[in-house]
Structures are given as C-alpha cells and as structure tokens.
Design a binder for these strands. Structure first.
Lengths: 162, 162
DNA sequence: CATATATTATAAGCGTGCTCATCATTCAAG
DNA sequence: CTTGAATGATGAGCACGCTTATAATATATG
C-alpha cells in the first residue's frame, strides 16, 4: 500500500491506550461502590471459574508476575473478596477461594462490565463489532507470539526457560 | 455459525486490556535500548510538536494529572530527554524543551512504533484495519463523553444492556 | 497596600505492574 | 539422611497512573 500509514494507523497505539484507559476508568467508577478494581475483577473471574486455583496458576493465566498476584490477593483478602487456604498436599501452595460476598456480587459486576462495553460501542454496527473483535483477537495473537529480536541478538538466555 | 451478536463482546475489556499491554510491552522491549518508556514517548511526541509547552498543557493533552506529568518530566529530565526552562513572564511556569538527543532519536523511535503497529496488524486486511480504527475512535469518543454519574442513578443509558 | 482566588508545579501516599532477591517447601540423586 | 535444583510465595524497590494537600506565584479586588 503506497497510501501512507497516516490513515490513523500511526495513532493505533495511542488509540488503544486511550480506549483501555477510559474503559478501565469507567468500569472502576461504577464498581467503586463495591470496592473492586479492574485488576481485581480480572482475577476474580479466574477464581470464580476455578475455585482453589493456585497463585502460580493465576499468574500464568493473567500473564502477570507471581509477585503481582501476591499483592493483588493481599488486598482482595483484606477487602473480603477471596480467601487463601493451605494445600495439605503441598505446603508451598496457597489455594484461592471466592468468599460468599464474591459469589453473590459476581453476576452484578459482570453485568456492570457488560454495560460499559455496550456504552463504549454505541454507534458501532453489529458487523463492525465483529470485525473489531476479530481484529483485536488477531492483534493479541500476533503480539503474544515470540518477540522477533530487539535488533541485535535473539538468543540471549531464555530459550528453554518457559 | 454465529450463535449471537455478543460473540466475544463480553470479553471486549479483557481483549483491549491484553492488546494494550502487549503492544506497550513490545514497544518498550524495542525502545529499552534507548531508555524510553511508552509514557515518556507519548509525552515526547507532544513536546516535539510544541517546544516550550507547559506542564499544565501537557497534562491536559495527555489527559493525565499534572502531578503525573511532574514525575514523568522528572525522570525524562534525569535521563536527558527534555529540559525545563523557566518562563520569564510567569515564574510559576516551567517550559519543556526537547534536548538534542531527543530531536535526533525522534524519527527512529517513531518508525519503531510503526513497526510494532504493523506487526500487530499482520493478517488484518486494509478494510478491516479501517473498521478497527474507526471503531476505536468511536469508542474513545463514547467513553470520553460525560460519565452518567458513578452513583446509582444512570438515567441516560439506553437500557439495552443485559 | 492587603487579601482572596486562581494557576502551576510539586509532595505524600496508594494501586498495580515490573525486576531481582529471599525463604520455605518439595523432589530428585546420591 | 544430605545435598542441590525446582517451585510457590513473598519482600524490597522502581515506574507510572491516581487522589488529596501544599507551596509559590500571579492576578483581581477592597
């Protein structure tokens, strides 16, 4: 395409950044009454799907570092969303369970998130929504694939690590 | 095939979050050699467009709080990307200028960002890219519009949400 | 002049991500 | 059992966003 990238593609990063930030902000404004951040909500979805999940597994699924999970779980335990239980079989492991409060609020928060999505998509046609989702999924897949070398050398150390 | 329109819409927030995070990560992996974060890059773009811009104006344009600009500028001054100069006319004001280093690196970093965009869009057709950008712009506009009061009363929402 | 208000920048402290380092526990080898 | 590597969780400290509060300066008004 000789058309230049300036049909908006050059602002793609800023756009994605803005939309993510605004969406998170709006969700948190709605959920603030419940005292739940978006990061905490993402974690809660995983815990609801798999009660007793370990922190290590959460880190893997959420694609954040185990230490970040530790901190998140700390605060969520403090605010009564989840609880840690020891695993009798492996005492290194802390299993994460939703509290009754979390189970009760789950459906409400989910529909609250749905409202934010719906509001953000006002004026976007059903077919464009499908294209949007498909494009975002493709992008996530492309970006999740291995980094094609930062310029100099690829094979530093971590080839077999993961 | 298509069961319902909400094919994935319920994961919109997670998708946007993932794409933004991965895109930022990849950019920063490339730019790490230059010691520039994506937040710093966003600020640098503004400073390049308007040398001598004030911190208050940067906060407004970047839609972040003035204190966040202070900290960003602190670090960028420390690492030699920008410099603060006092305004003779108004001694409250600190005017921000790019350093020679910043001016020299600008084009390189810009093309680096373009590479990340292009990689992320691999496999997305030109027409789908246009739809994507248009949809994201619509979403940003929708979300930037006045929050319908974070309390309990949401009067103007179209009532469409599940 | 004195004082009240607005504006610009910064300070303090928190949430959520990171890296690097540490501790406890498990497991594999000897 | 002892040693050593791997694994799960956490601590320390940093980046970058936030809110709330302050300091310094500018400006409007009595």
């Amino acid at each position: 395409m000789q058309l230049m990238v300036s049909d908006g593609i050059d602002r793609l990063g800023f756009l994605i950044h803005d939309v993510q930030r605004l969406m998170r902000k709006r969700f948190e404004a709605r959920a603030s009454g419940l005292g739940l951040s978006s990061a905490q909500w993402r974690l809660m979805v995983r815990v609801a799907k798999e009660e007793g999940i370990t922190q290590a597994r959460l880190a893997e699924l959420l694609e954040i570092e185990p230490i970040s999970v530790s901190r998140l779980v700390d605060r969520m335990e403090d605010s009564g969303w989840i609880e840690r239980r020891s695993d009798a079989a492996d005492r290194r492991v802390r299993m994460i369970f939703p509290t009754a409060k979390a189970s009760q609020a789950y459906a409400e928060i989910k529909s609250l998130a749905g409202e934010v999505y719906e509001e953000s998509l006002t004026g976007v046609s059903p077919q464009d929504r499908r294209v949007l989702i498909k494009a975002l999924e493709t992008m996530a897949r492309n970006l999740a694939d291995g980094e094609p070398a930062p310029g100099e050398k690829i094979e530093s150390a971590e080839g077999a690590a993961a």
